[in-house]
Amino acid sequence: MNVVQSIGAALTPQGLIWTVILFGIAVFLHELAHYALARAQGVSVRSFSIGMGPVLLKRQWKGTEWRVSALPLGGYVEIDGMAPEDDGQGRARQPTRGFAALPAWGKVAVLLAGPLMNLVLGIGLMTASFSAQGIPALDRARIEDVQAGSRAQTLGLQAGDVIVAIDGRDLPETRVVGGREAPGYEGVRDALAQPGPHTFTVERSGTPRDVRFDWQPSVGGERQRLGIRYGPDVQPAGIGTALSTALSTTAQAGPQVLRSFAALFGQFFTFDLSPDENVSGPIGTAEIVSRAAELGPWALVQIATLLNLSLAFFNLLPIPGLDGGRILLVLVGALRGRPLSFAQEQAINFAGFAFLMTLIAFVWLRDVARFF
């Protein structure tokens, strides 16, 4: 299979459309939050663009030029007083009005609004998913399907059975595999990689029973399959439980997301193009969305949740050019009792922007390198 065929096998037109929609909504609401907090403090916003690059459509409304731009991924707002001013002689100077005239807390509020919007949206989507679908119990593996004529059917396993223990040991919530955390229910796969006798403790209609069998992962060089499809068990939840679980899940996800970004930076500085399933580029993201689109609307909701949480955490990183980097500069100025000089701030922001553009190019390159 050549490169084009390989990409085509994973991407679908429906998936590409949903990628643009999900990412577009996340970015639009992010920028809308910046816009709202600036306007609430009396700061004008010159333009608000959905998309990047050349402007396709524009309309003036409430003192802001609202734009639709050619590149569908991304967006921006031009807040008065955030970019350098023209001194009248063709030279840039430190702005003195609008955003620049706000107190430190006002600036932080404008900058923090975008990531907080994505964070709130991600938690809200997760709460809706848990409330509608239930909360996954990672320490219990529910058998979703048993293949006809398989070893599993011979052993008497049925769809709806819940595996709660393997070889006398309860399944953990999470386990460490290859240096990363993995759901405990995937321990079923680990057990089937080991030859010998096994015992699955299975709950059926609330009654436990032991299923004992001898197992060989391969016979004559051919991989053996038990013949089950499984996933985490799901417990029903009300709104309150769904919200509290969403909050705790987000708190737990934060460090994991940051470790993923740290690994990405490590790969960037060593120019390691090996794929990383924890951080996807645009092609990888479109592939994931394509698969989710085939599974149904709740799978897309889960992808939207992850996308918004990732945007929130990434934008809060203290890197110049990101909201977190700008917040850091504001706080440094507040601690010094005066803002950084125009030259200092320009140099820092330029370096941060150059780093981000290089990092984005690296992610694109790593994404494409997977197909070779």
Rank of each mutant, 00 (worst) to 15 (best):
Q5M: 09
P13E: 09
Q14L: 15
Q14H: 08
L22N: 10
F23V: 15
I25M: 10
A26C: 15
V27A: 03
F28E: 05
A38N: 13
A38Q: 12
V45S: 07
R46P: 00
F48A: 02
M52D: 10
L57I: 14
K58G: 02
W66Y: 11
P72N: 03
M82S: 11
D86S: 08
R91N: 14
A92V: 07
F99R: 03
F99H: 03
A101M: 10
P103F: 03
A109Y: 05
M117T: 07
L121P: 00
G124K: 10
S131D: 01
G134C: 06
I135L: 14
R140D: 05
A141W: 08
D145C: 01
G156K: 04
G160R: 11
G160W: 05
V162A: 08
I166Q: 00
G187L: 10
G187H: 04
R189H: 11
D190G: 02
D190L: 14
H198D: 00
T201Y: 03
R204F: 09
R209N: 04
E222V: 14
R223V: 10
R225S: 06
L226F: 01
R229G: 12
G231W: 05
P236C: 02
A237L: 06
G240I: 02
Q252I: 04
Q256A: 13
A263G: 07
L264S: 09
G266W: 03
Q267F: 02
T270P: 02
F271L: 10
D272H: 01
S274D: 01
I283R: 07
T285W: 03
T285G: 15
I288H: 03
I288M: 15
E294W: 04
A299I: 09
L307E: 09
N308I: 07
L309E: 06
S310A: 15
A312S: 14
L322R: 05
D323M: 13
R326N: 15
G333L: 12
L335N: 04
G337C: 08
P339V: 13
E345Y: 05
I348F: 11
N349E: 09
F350C: 00
I360G: 13
F372W: 11
F372Y: 07
